[in-house]
Simulated scan of single mutants.
Amino acid sequence: MRHIRAVPLQEADERFGVRSLFHLDGIDDAEVVVFTGDTTLESLPLDFSELDSWSGLTKTHPDAFRGVVVDGDLTVTEWITNWDTDFGPFLLVRGDVRAKSLATSGSEILIEGDLEVAQTLAGFYNHGHTVIKGDTRAEVVLTSQHLSEFHGRLTAELCVAGKFLRVADPARVQVNGWEGHVHDLRGDILPSLGSASTRALRALDPDFRDLDRRPLLKAIEAGRSLLRAPGPPRATPDGPRTPAEAIRDILRLAGSREQDRWDDGFVVGEGKDDVFEVFYCEANEPDDPPAPGAPEVLDPAAELLRYAGALTAAGYRVAADPHDAEVLLVRR
């Protein structure tokens, strides 16, 4: 059962001290949504217009609800999201929070207990902030120009620090992959955490490696993990394959590395008259010096021989480009 009611901001401040916790200057007559006791919800929209209609409450003041207080633990089956980068209702939870994902932009969030999200904790843009007083666990923690403070233990597969991620105690951080610098609560860089390399972003699904806010929020609300699916690439995925994609599948399954932002590898060029160019190419953003755990340096000539062997074995005709010995011409 949801024990929910609209409370005048002055009453919410007297009970929970919200004016001292959030930026509410110049607001006197607005109201706040208050849940009393432990609360379970399917989802929680932290945008002003959506929160008003979602709550089902009748307001006595025309202004939108300024925030949400949960005086207990909060369990959300799906997501807590805030899309507006400039503004958003605050969220104060006086207990623990469990959700599939939590993503905010302009909202200010304070969780006084622990936070456990099955998938993603994300913060976008610098008008909001997220503070977790207890322990935090997530698959992915992503900050992008959004101040995020972790006062307790932090456990995650991947953390994208975005220069605004702060932790109270580095000894209580267990993260398998870092992108970006990490700071203490004063804002000083912690040399023992973080990474100057962006290579850890390879753990993300390729759809999300650009860290674009709107696609990420859509994926979060769809219940989609941001991590790359485990296992080898599929040679015969659902749907028809283009000839270039079929060539890529053969090279991947033969163990050849595909060129991307971080690693040297093969490229399959656009086809012309059913002939495709296959060549070796250097990374767009190589680590200099190489990051710990980076793949071994490849020999371009040896890689071309591997490409030719794999494609010939798969029934393709392969020849060197007469105008460029470092390019293979591939056709059925």
Rank of each mutant, 00 (worst) to 15 (best):
S225I: 10
P289T: 10
E221Y: 06
R214S: 14
I247N: 01
P237S: 10
A301I: 12
G231M: 09
P292I: 11
Y280F: 15
A235T: 14
R252M: 13
A283L: 04
A200W: 06
P191L: 10
A203M: 12
R261F: 07
G269R: 08
A294I: 03
A235H: 04
C281G: 08
A196Q: 05
A313P: 09
V275Q: 13
Q259Y: 05
E285G: 02
L298H: 07
E245T: 11
D299G: 00
S256H: 13
V297M: 10
R317N: 07
D263Y: 05
E296P: 05
R241D: 09
Q259F: 02
L193M: 05
T312I: 14
F208C: 03
R248P: 02
R224H: 04
D210F: 03
P215H: 00
D263L: 10
G271S: 04
P206N: 05
E270N: 13
E285N: 13
P215S: 00
S197I: 08
G315L: 09
P233G: 05
G271Q: 05
P233K: 04
D238H: 11
R252K: 08
D188C: 02
A222G: 02
P240F: 13
D249K: 01
T242G: 15
P286V: 13
K218G: 00
G194W: 00
A291F: 14
S256A: 14
E282H: 14
I220F: 03
S197D: 01
G315M: 10
L201T: 09
S195E: 01
P295Y: 10
P322I: 11
W262Y: 14
R202E: 06
R214N: 06
